[in-house]
């Protein structure tokens, strides 16, 4: 219902502050750009370890790119709010800040869903990554759970962006961190013990393992991994909810809400 309401909050948020407004931009940045991204890392990895490794890397990067799309665009929405000087108007409304942030998350979440599905289709058509039949329901479950844990993690960034007007370096560093430590390009079991524990606390790590298992590229217990992923998502959600109120208070204290870029 919320999707088709012309004057609904989600639709208007998208129109007002989202980066990709034209169909042309959408096609390029949601189909061509992810494809390039997959090719890039597939080439990097297969020139290192050989082309039999290609599918493994592409699958990882399909999940990674989804995460990147959600995080970057979610953050960008708040940057745009600052640029337009509308952040304070939003915060000053009687709607709780947490609710505003959560509702704005719907747009990047849908965007991420689209990228994920398109990614899998690209994988199937161009990289010959085909799923064994009969796993479609688990795959759907996995997509939903992955999006959930990623958006919960992204909430951390959204709340941080209340306080810092430019969290871009922080965001880029995290994305690079994810690229290395979430098992996107190689199995996290290759990491030294303490780093592997860290990797297992991040979203995406378990999802990627589960996704590869669904595609028979790895052999793990899928439901077990998905259970962990949900748990991680819930943990980040709790931290984020707490952090939003802390950040709002801090932002009021040092005047960060009023800083426009």
């Amino acid at each position: 219902m919320i999707l088709i309401n012309k004057y609904g909050f989600t639709n208007l948020s998208y129109k007002a502050i989202y980066s990709f407004q034209t169909i042309r931009l959408f096609i390029f940045f949601r189909i061509v750009d992810p494809f390039m991204h997959y090719v890039f890392f597939a080439t990097l990895a297969s020139s290192l370890v050989g082309s039999d490794y290609l599918k493994y890397v592409v699958i990882g990067n399909i999940a990674y790119y989804t995460c990147q799309t959600i995080m970057i665009n979610y953050m960008n929405m708040f940057r745009m709010e600052r640029r337009y000087g509308t952040l304070e108007l939003n915060i000053a409304s009687p709607t709780p800040t947490l609710l505003i942030i959560l509702r704005k998350g719907i747009v990047p979440l849908l965007d991420g869903l689209f990228v994920f599905i398109v990614g899998l289709i690209i994988g199937a058509i161009l990289f010959d990554i085909t799923m064994p039949s009969g796993n479609l329901d688990i795959l759907l479950l996995l997509i939903i759970i992955t999006l959930f844990s990623v958006i919960c993690f992204s909430l951390l960034f959204a709340s941080v962006s209340l306080l810092f007007s430019n969290a871009n370096l922080f965001l880029n560093l995290s994305m690079a961190f994810f690229q290395v430590f979430c098992g996107v390009n190689f199995s996290v079991t290759l990491l030294p013990e303490p780093l592997e524990i860290l990797a297992r606390m991040l979203p995406l790590t378990h999802s990627i393992e589960a996704l590869r298992s669904i595609y028979n590229l790895e052999n793990y217990e899928v439901y077990h991994l998905l259970g962990k992923e949900i748990l991680i998502g819930v943990c980040y959600l709790i931290v984020s909810v707490f952090l939003v109120s802390v950040m709002e208070k801090l932002a009021r204290k040092n005047g960060a809400l009023l800083k426009n870029i």
């Binding site: 909050f9 208007l12 502050i17 337009y84 108007l89």
Partner: peptide, 18 residues
């Protein structure tokens, strides 16, 4: 403090929801 891409009506709807 305005969203240039929205129409006045859309802008008002947005804040009505908030």
């Amino acid at each position: 403090g305005v969203y240039g891409r929205l129409t006045a009506k859309e802008y008002m709807h947005y804040f009505c929801t908030l």
